[in-house]
């Protein structure tokens, strides 16, 4: 299977991951004394956005959502020894953030798993990654439903109760996740799975 669509998409995904890693490394290695280099790297990032055809609005939304972390960290470093460098640091970090957001929009979990499988990552980790992604939304929905059911019967705004209620949602979520894990194991066995 040399040129099947699967192997081609796997190669594409591998290229995207490697490209993003290289770009982030390049940006990280940029010396603080050379802020202009960052401009050139910014163009590379823009090129990546164009090549991967990432829609701009969701991209901007993700970046804005995550940028407070960078701002906070940059401010923390502004208190530090090289107080004048914090702008460079913020720019550098933002460029990296855009790169990672582009990557996260451009690869799917299936492609990612195919890449990791080709890279000989242990099967146990792959199984765990795949199952996590499969049940992430199922459990998030369950958690939201439990939260709603709780708040429908919560009449006090006291913080103490809010904590106990939220904790019991999380606790029940774990119980349900373990019970579901049992049933998933049974379903896997029923179709001939061997550990």
């Amino acid at each position: 299977m040399s040129a099947t669509p699967e192997s081609r998409s796997r190669r594409n995904a591998a290229l995207k991951v490697a490209g993003a890693l290289l770009l982030v490394l390049l940006i990280t290695l940029t010396p603080v004394s050379r802020p202009l280099w960052l401009g050139a790297e910014g163009l590379l990032v823009a090129l990546a956005v164009a090549v991967c055809r990432v829609p701009l609005v969701p991209l901007a939304r993700r970046v804005l959502l995550l940028s407070p972390f960078i701002a906070g960290a940059a401010l923390a470093s502004a208190v530090g020894a090289h107080a004048s460098d914090w702008q460079t640091l913020a720019v550098r970090s933002s460029l990296c953030l855009v790169t990672v957001v582009v990557l996260s929009q451009a690869v799917t979990i299936a492609e990612l798993l195919a890449v990791l499988r080709a890279a000989k990552v242990p099967t146990l980790l792959l199984t765990t990654l795949a199952l996590m992604h499969r049940y992430l939304f199922v459990l998030a929905d369950e958690s939201a439903r439990m939260g709603r059911a709780r708040s429908a019967r919560t009449f006090s705004g006291r913080r103490r109760f809010a904590w106990i209620a939220a904790a019991s949602v999380v606790g029940n979520l774990f119980v349900r996740a373990s019970e579901r894990a049992e049933r998933v194991y049974e379903a896997m066995c029923a179709r001939g799975w061997k550990a």
Binding site: M132, Y135, V184, M188
Partner: peptide, 17 residues
């Protein structure tokens, strides 16, 4: 074995509470 994946999904969902 499936408990690992389910626990990871659990933790992800729990972090959103």
């Amino acid at each position: 074995v499936p408990l690992l994946g389910l626990s990871a999904a659990f933790l992800f969902a729990a972090q959103m509470v």
